[in-house]
């Protein structure tokens, strides 16, 4: 018999005593836990996102769509970025003020080539306020998973409040499981030395998150 048959046979014998239990999945689980924690206004939810991102050492900036390009230029210039990775459908006006050389996200690029790129700029699929998490789903404004992994500096642009949810349950509702997802909460870190958190291991050591509000404001704050 194949191992598949062996294992399935063992499983069926092992649970023979509870075979009578045919409580359907929908009734077997008590989902009385909360869909989100606490009551907040939309603005407060965005503030909580900013606070929790910063708590895990992401650098948070706030701006408007009009001023985004200027801000990105400044952030890349401050870091001395000469090459910046660009997903295929990143809105073109985002980088219009940026003079760093664009490197396009292509299937044939090798990891070693990506390793020589200074920074990457992407959008995201959704951001979770309660946990300070941004989620990428490989959409055309985010690129392949590896482009936000190999370069040492990642700038992620979040449209607020549209892309912000309060909680993990709300985020899962918005996401498509068939897409490859990357959930990011702060820069790469480890707790492996004496169970204490240290930032900066294999992923980007600097994560900057730009919260862009839809309505243009007179002055961008950062």
């Amino acid at each position: 018999m194949s191992s598949r048959g062996v294992i399935l046979g063992r499983v069926r014998r092992a649970i023979a005593d509870v075979r009578q239990d045919d409580t359907p999945y929908g009734q077997a689980i008590d989902r009385s836990y909360l869909r989100e924690h606490g009551a907040r206004s939309v603005a407060e939810t965005v503030d909580l996102l900013a606070e929790n991102l910063a708590d895990y050492r992401a650098v948070v900036h706030r701006t408007t769509d009009d001023e985004l390009s200027e801000l990105l230029m400044r952030l890349l210039a401050e870091r001395g970025t000469r090459t910046v990775l660009v997903p295929p459908e990143l809105p073109s006006h985002w980088l219009k003020a940026v003079d760093a050389t664009r490197v396009h996200d292509r299937a044939q690029s090798t990891p070693a080539e990506l390793d020589r790129v200074d920074s990457v700029v992407t959008a995201c699929a959704v951001a979770i306020a309660e946990t300070g998490t941004i989620v990428l789903d490989g959409g055309p404004d985010q690129g392949r998973r590896r482009v936000t992994l190999v370069p040492d500096h990642h700038i992620c642009v979040v449209h607020v409040p549209d892309q912000v949810v309060s909680s993990v349950p709300q985020a899962l509702e918005r996401l498509d499981p068939t897409r490859p997802l990357t959930w990011i909460s702060g820069p790469s870190a480890t707790s492996d030395i004496e169970l204490d958190r240290v930032e900066g291991v294999h992923g980007p050591r600097t994560l900057e998150v730009v919260l862009v509000s839809g309505q243009p404001r007179a002055e961008a704050t950062s």
Partner: peptide
């Protein structure tokens, strides 16, 4: 496990994705 609101990275994948991974 690590006493974090969320761990730094969570990856999910479903089979293979063309030209990614």
């Amino acid at each position: 496990s690590t006493a974090e609101r969320m761990n730094p990275y969570t990856s999910t994948w479903t089979g293979t994705t063309d030209e990614d991974g």
